[in-house]
Structures are given as C-alpha cells and as structure tokens.
C-alpha cells in the first residue's frame, strides 16, 4: 500500500528555494497525522551538500540524484528522475511547489504517474487518512475542496502561504541513479538572463506596492518605487496600467496576471476590478489609497485612505522611513 509523504524540492544554483522549506514543513505536519515518513526528492548537480538543510524542517530521508544533466532544470530530465524514484517507493502523498518550475514539472509527473492532482493549493489536510486539498478557483472568486481516488495524491502548494516550521530530524541521504535516457531529453536551456534589479518576484514577495489607472502615467510610478525601496517591496500593477503600456507585463497582478499573497499589499489608485481583486485577495494585509470613497477596493482593504495618492504616498514613504530608522 502506498505510504509516506513525499515532496519535490526546488533549488537554483545550488541554493534551496524558500518553497522547499514550506513543502518540508507542510509534509511534516501531514506525515505526523498519518504516522508516516517525510521523504524529499532533490535533483541537480553538485547539490548533495545542501540535502542536510531539509532535515531541519522535518524531512526524514532525502533522495538525491546528482547528475550533470539535471542542471539547469529541464522538464524532461527532472520529470524522468522524479517519476523513477516515486514509482519505486509508492508514496501516498506527493507535494510540489506551485512555482513556475513546479507547475511545469507537476503536470508532466501527473502524466507519468497517471494520477490526480490539485494545483496551487492554499490548504492541505488529512481527513479520513486521505489528503483533502483546498485551492482557489476562478482566481480566488471561489474555492474547491479536492479529494483523490488514486495515488500518489498530488498537490502543489502556493508559494508564501504555508508556514516554515523548524523540526530537526536525523535526516538520511539516499543517493539514486536518475537513469536518464539522453535520447528522451528534448529540451535544453540555451541562456539564462538574470534579473539584476535584486527585487523579489511578485509571487514570492512579502511586500507589494501596486499602482493602477490612478497613477496617470508611467512617471507616476516613481513615487511608488520610492515607497517600495523604503519598505523593501516589489512593485506591481493593475491590468489597466499594463495594457496602457505604463508597466511591463511581468508586473501585472490579477486573474490574467500573477496571483500574489504577500504579507502587505498596498494598492494605489486601483479601483479594484474583480479580476484584480481575484489576484491579490489572499494577501495578509491590504491597504488601499484611492480618491474615490466608492472604489470597490475599499471593501477588501484592511486599511483604507481616501485621498490623493500623489499626496499620501510621499508622506507615507517619509513616515515609514522614520519608523524604520527608530
């Protein structure tokens, strides 16, 4: 019978990404309820040394495939390696991150394992010894509770939602041969162009300052950048602002952009069209600054300021600067 809670970890350039610890902590919680083990899959090249970090967050066993063809990530190589070790060990639950890489890999694994999967979950728990996954649908306009009739029961977890909990285990490392068939590796990475701005991606940001139509033009974003610099936030934008060409596509938050869940989301000059609200309503705290007291964004905001954002934001930037210097 299928047994064990497994996770597929994610590393980049030999550094485990935060989602890996979110996965480990969540898997530990589920495994404790089931009385089972947590096993992690770690794939890459020259990465054996980082396996131990996972045991700090409750991982009992780390299955490591260290192979040049696993670096950098490609779908074919990682899916082949992960599917092999999963099939050999028959876990009852398999968790991945709903990061860009995790989304690319999870579908491929679903195909290889012919199983069911709940994507981008915001909650997972055990009910009657089985996985019950809760996930936003329609960009959060409603939620679905997913049940499974096959194993492994697969779920991907939305980044930034699940807490990281330290829970040290002895943590054994098991090396395995990924048995890659070079003729089946049909994609390759030709070039990696890193974003040198040093800003955290919107989907992983703890703080986001977003601007909408109320910014009046691309220059308006200077004051938003100013506030973002002071509080260490990433800048986002509404669809209206992106479609107007004021901000790049990668900044768009909403149903046809990025779905974000920061600790603090500051919406400036965003009226709150339903498609925007859908993309940010899982933020822990929402602040809205808008001249129009009737703007729908205020119904979602924890703190609302009805005023001209061009006056409020510079003042807020100064006030935050002062508080942070204390």
């Amino acid at each position: 019978m299928a047994k064990g809670v497994w996770i597929v970890t994610e590393q980049r350039d030999g550094v485990l990404r935060k989602i890996s610890f979110e996965l480990a902590s969540t898997a530990r919680k589920l495994a404790d309820q089931l009385g089972e083990e947590v096993c992690a899959i770690l794939l890459g090249s020259g990465i054996e040394g980082i396996a131990g970090e996972l045991s700090k967050y409750g991982v009992d066993k780390v299955y490591v495939a260290d192979n040049a063809a696993l670096e950098p990530y490609t779908t074919d190589a990682h899916a082949m390696a992960a599917a092999k070790v999963v099939k050999e060990n028959d876990p009852s639950i398999l968790l991945l991150g709903a990061s860009i890489q995790g989304k690319d890999l999870s579908g491929r694994l679903v195909g290889k394992l012919a199983t069911g999967m709940a994507a981008d979950c915001t909650d997972v728990k055990i009910a009657d010894s089985k996985l019950l996954a809760t996930r936003p649908m329609y960009a959060g306009k409603c939620y679905g509770e997913i049940v499974f009739s096959s194993t492994p029961q697969m779920a991907s977890l939305r980044p930034n939602v699940f807490p990281i909990v330290e829970n040290p285990k002895a943590g054994t490392v098991v090396k395995f041969d990924p048995a890659l068939d070079p003729s089946q590796l049909k994609t390759k990475v030709l070039e990696v162009q890193k974003d040198t701005s040093g800003k955290v991606d919107l989907t992983e940001a703890n703080f986001i300052v977003s601007g909408g139509r109320g910014m009046k033009g691309p220059e308006g974003y200077q004051i938003i950048e100013g506030l973002a610099d002071v509080i260490g936030a990433t800048v986002g934008a509404s669809r209206a602002a992106v479609d107007a060409g004021w901000r790049p596509l990668s900044d768009q938050v909403g149903q046809t952009g990025k779905v974000v869940s920061p600790n603090l989301y500051i919406a400036c000059g965003i009226s709150g069209a339903i498609q925007h609200l859908a993309g940010m309503s899982s933020s822990k705290y929402i602040v809205a600054v808008n001249k129009d007291p009737e703007a729908p964004i205020f119904a979602k905001a924890d703190y609302g300021v009805v005023d001209d954002l061009f006056k409020i934001i510079p003042e807020l930037t100064e006030a935050c600067k002062k508080l942070l210097a204390e």
Binding site: T115, Y143, E145, S281, I286, A301, D302, G304, D308
Partner: peptide, 29 residues
C-alpha cells in the same frame, strides 16, 4: 476521474477594514 472537486465553497470573507482618518495627508499617512 482521479481528483475531483468534492465541494465548491465561497472565498473566505475578509473582516471589514477601517478608513484611516486625519485632517491632512501627512496626518493620514
């Protein structure tokens, strides 16, 4: 079907927020 939506539920409601008052932008900020 290997994974099905057993139940659809409305999104969690957000508690009503507060409007930050003040006489001028500096006070509000």
């Amino acid at each position: 079907v290997k994974a099905k939506v057993a139940r659809f539920i409305p999104p969690p409601a957000r508690a009503a927020g507060k409007i930050v008052g003040g006489d001028d932008p500096a006070t509000k900020a």
